[in-house]
């Protein structure tokens, strides 16, 4: 597998789409930070939070980069060159997984680097305990690896490059939008404060009323669990600064990685290739 990893990384290094996505991940994170800074200069005081806010952008660029990288082996037929000379399917699957995950982590690091350097130059501070900051970094890295595993399943089981790109992008948007919707539903307050106009023209507060949009009971537990387990949900929580169960999130990501890889590797093992 080391041979395949060497070959994969050499190819990744020469792949234009990877570099374009890497530069865009870096540039977009920096642009977002500078845009926030122009409105709220005090944001540099909470640099740690700013660093964690660009995870979903990285996922978007990773999805494009991974789909093009994995799809090329099918569209150019070069996956055959690996099998013909005796590499096993497991070796091919895992080497692609490692390469995709590494490219995700590299993009994440690129998005942090620009913000960190600029923020520090602007006199910024982390704004959170170092331990908490490293925990958030670990959550981000694990989530990026888990989402890479999902992209790897798509990229290894579908033989058409254009279909891989389409499905990967659609999946990314579904995951992003789904996580944002869940997050906003969970953020709805349990009670809402009504306003009433008094006879003398003033405004008085009414008794708090139950919010019909509030999600409660088992449905709330399920939605919370889904948002904690899915990498996109973890990124959205990091972005909004309200991480539900940080100590478990890396474990959830490892679970997603293991489940996706088990399904993908088993299906790829028996897949008929052309």
């Amino acid at each position: 597998m080391v041979r395949l990893l060497r070959a994969n990384f050499a190819r990744l290094w020469k792949t234009k789409s990877f570099w374009v996505c890497l530069i865009l991940a870096f540039a977009l994170a920096l642009a977002n930070f500078l845009s926030t800074y122009s409105v709220q200069p005090q944001c540099v005081e909470k640099l740690g939070r700013e660093l964690m806010s660009g995870g979903m952008n990285v996922v978007l660029f990773l999805s494009i980069s991974a789909a093009l990288f994995l799809g090329t082996d099918y569209s150019n037929g070069t996956i055959r060159n690996k099998l013909v000379i005796g590499h096993t399917r497991a070796e091919i699957y895992f080497s692609n997984l490692v390469t995709t995950a590494a490219s995700g982590v590299i993009m994440l690091a690129a998005s942090w680097t620009g913000v960190l350097i600029t923020g520090l130059c602007l006199g910024g501070k982390l704004g959170m305990p170092v331990g908490e900051f490293f925990m958030y970094m670990l959550i981000s890295v694990c989530a990026a690896v888990a989402i890479s595993a999902l992209f790897n399943v798509i990229g290894m089981l579908i033989s058409s490059k254009s279909t891989i790109v389409t499905i990967t992008l659609v999946s990314t948007f579904v995951l992003m939008i789904g996580a944002a919707v869940i997050m906003s539903m969970l953020a709805a307050p349990e009670y809402v404060q009504g306003y009433e106009m008094s006879v003398n023209g003033g405004v008085v507060l009414s008794e708090p009323e139950p919010n019909p949009s509030y999600v409660s009971g088992a449905k709330r537990d399920i939605m919370t669990a889904v948002n904690d387990i899915l990498p996109s949900g973890q990124f959205v929580q990091l972005e909004m600064g309200s991480v539900h169960s940080p100590e478990f999130m890396p474990l959830y990501s490892l679970g997603v990685l293991a489940a996706a890889t088990a399904v993908g590797a088993l299906a790829f093992r028996r897949k008929d290739l052309k």
Binding site: A7, A10, R80, V84
Partner: peptide, 27 residues
């Protein structure tokens, strides 16, 4: 063994030399 199955399996965005280097790494 070596094989050319149906269409040649080559990276279209690489030169001939880079294609061979890539296969050397795979091997």
């Amino acid at each position: 063994m070596g094989a050319v199955v149906e269409t040649p399996s080559i990276y279209l965005d690489m030169t001939a030399e880079d294609n061979l280097k890539e296969q050397y790494r795979v091997l």
